[in-house]
Design a protein around this nucleic acid. Structure first.
Lengths: 145, 145
DNA sequence: TTCCTTATTGAAAAAATATTTCAATACGTT
DNA sequence: AACGTATTGAAATATTTTTTCAATAAGGAA
């Protein structure tokens, strides 16, 4: 763990009164280095290269903590339910109901909707996940046979 | 299981070459009677009142099958990862990162975006899940203290 | 209807995933 | 450098999901 690329995050941890430990730094760094949502298991595996003593239990605990502080957020990928991503990592994808193929798409046009929700509910919105589901071209063709 | 309220679904099962069994009918009916996403466990519990011999294993298998046929879809509720809902049940909610409180909101303005995605990807879109995450008013206030 | 074939089922066992407990450790303050 | 305490990892436990397999029941044929 030579270079910290997340000074803002580490500071937020400190300011909330938590200690800045090697395991926590490792988890933070792994999240930062990955765009996609990662399962606790994957984070554990990658994290061990940064902090060899890291335990899976600590990964679970740290993810809970980071999510509570808004530094990470839970992402519901199709394979792994308890996946996490660095905060602010929005995701938009279509998943085929039949073959599970996933395609990401650029997302615009959500801003108005988000503004409206903020107004109606009073929530501050910091991230989103938009999962569309349907049938991919291949499976459409297959169904018509 | 006196009244079948899902003739279209049962027919789709038959047409795909699957048998129309009591356990499958029970799962279908439970899904139809509930708007929210249900965990396999809950479906199992409710399904037993319709088909007393129903087993949890069969619930898992049936959900897989229905999802593959597009008759049900997986819904990623925060508490239960493997939740399922009747097909076409869209969901829109904001979840507070700190206290996990969930509020649903009516969703409009997604149609344009969906049309664009259909055009770009060729996918037929039949449902969606939009999860916004942020901080609820209470937790915002608490953080400012 | 009754018989037959075979997909489907439920129970048990196994595997995978998540949580709790607790003594040992390491963070940050003094 | 030494101390108090939050944090850790390992083991044990609990929960959730998948696999295996003999018994059952769905649906076509007679």
């Amino acid at each position: 763990m030579t270079h910290l690329k997340h000074p803002a995050m580490t500071q937020a941890l400190r300011e909330a009164g938590y200690r800045l430990t090697q395991p926590r730094l490792a988890v933070l760094q792994v999240l930062q280095e990955n765009d996609a949502g990662l399962s606790p298991e994957e984070i554990y595996r990658q994290g061990k290269t940064l902090c060899p003593t890291l335990g899976l239990v600590t990964v679970y605990r740290t993810l809970d903590l980071l999510a509570e502080l808004g530094l990470a957020r839970r992402v519901h990928s199709e394979q792994h339910c308890h996946s996490y991503a660095s905060a602010g990592a929005d995701r938009h994808y279509v998943i085929c109901q039949a073959c599970r193929r996933v395609i990401e798409f650029p997302c615009h046009g959500l801003d108005d909707l988000i503004a409206e929700v903020r107004q109606r509910t009073g929530y501050t919105i910091v991230g989103h996940l938009l999962e569309l589901s349907g049938l991919c071209p291949d499976c459409q063709a297959r169904q018509e046979m």
